[in-house]
């Protein structure tokens, strides 16, 4: 774990000195701020329901930019040779990289806490859905970052990593649409179970279903496993 923390700290250093990370964070916060203002003004409701959904879509668009650099850039610049010849395991490298991205994301999310605070000060919102919504948003982002990490491990090219990650996320986002058009069959039911959108929707309604939590955690676990294997494959190529 100590080694993973060392790698995480370097990753965070990299995030907080890079223009990409700052512009991504600025973009996210700007959109969230605008949407919060707009939805509260129009609906006159003290709820974050709309903000959560819009933030999730924004996240879908920007999270590839947060992860594309992670391993791809090290492979391109050759600095991966330091990482992979140091006495650390591939798993520690991947965990460290992932934690770095996760902490950056969490700190970005932390800055949006002003909106529930504003609502609590000025109205009387239902605190439950706000809390579960944040848990859902965190898990959703964590899953996005894990998918992005796999993509970044598979290539030397940051653009390819970003596009790859975005494609997978988008497909998982809209996968339930296939099922919702026709009559319910086994297939559409399976696809619906895989949908990130549906899973996330439950959280915003104030629902924490252990199946949803396990779903997100499995995606994360599976992606980290794939990343470790992909990194190992660099050695035996």
């Amino acid at each position: 774990m100590k080694n993973a923390i060392v790698i995480m700290r370097r990753e965070l250093h990299s995030y907080f000195t890079s223009t990409i990370a700052y512009s991504v964070a600025a973009f996210f916060l700007l959109i969230c701020g605008y949407l919060f203002f707009a939805t509260v003004k129009v609906t006159q409701e003290a709820t974050l329901l709309y903000l959560f959904h819009n933030a999730a879509v924004t996240l879908l668009l920007i999270s590839p930019a947060m992860t594309m650099r992670l391993v791809a850039e090290e492979r391109r610049s050759g600095s991966i040779e330091l990482l992979m010849t140091a006495p650390v395991t591939d798993t520690q490298v991947i965990i460290g990289k992932y934690l770095g991205a996760l902490v950056f994301y969490a700190s970005m999310l932390l800055l949006t806490l002003q909106y529930p605070i504003i609502l609590l000060r000025l109205g009387s919102p239902d605190g439950g859905p706000m809390l579960t919504g944040y848990i859902g948003l965190f898990l959703l982002g964590a899953a996005f970052l894990a998918i992005g990490l796999v993509a970044s491990t598979l290539t030397k090219n940051q653009i390819v990593a970003a596009v790859g990650a975005f494609s997978v996320m988008l497909i998982l986002w809209v996968i339930s649409w296939v099922g919702s058009t026709g009559a319910s069959s086994t297939w559409s039911e399976v696809l619906r179970q895989l949908s990130l959108l549906d899973r996330f929707g439950n959280f915003t309604k104030g629902l924490i279903d252990s199946r949803d939590v396990i779903f997100f955690l499995s995606i994360i676990g599976f992606c980290l496993f794939l990343s470790v294997r992909a990194l190992g494959a660099v050695k035996s190529r």
């Binding site: 250093h13 990299s14 991966i80 990482l83």
Partner: peptide, 25 residues
């Protein structure tokens, strides 16, 4: 190990880079 392509991070200073390398090793 010093690879032919020196594995450096452009966004760090030599001191912070070496501190990182030390901890990593």
């Amino acid at each position: 190990y010093l690879p032919e392509n020196v594995p450096l991070y452009d966004d760090m200073t030599p001191r912070s880079y070496l501190q990182y390398a030390a901890r990593l090793k």
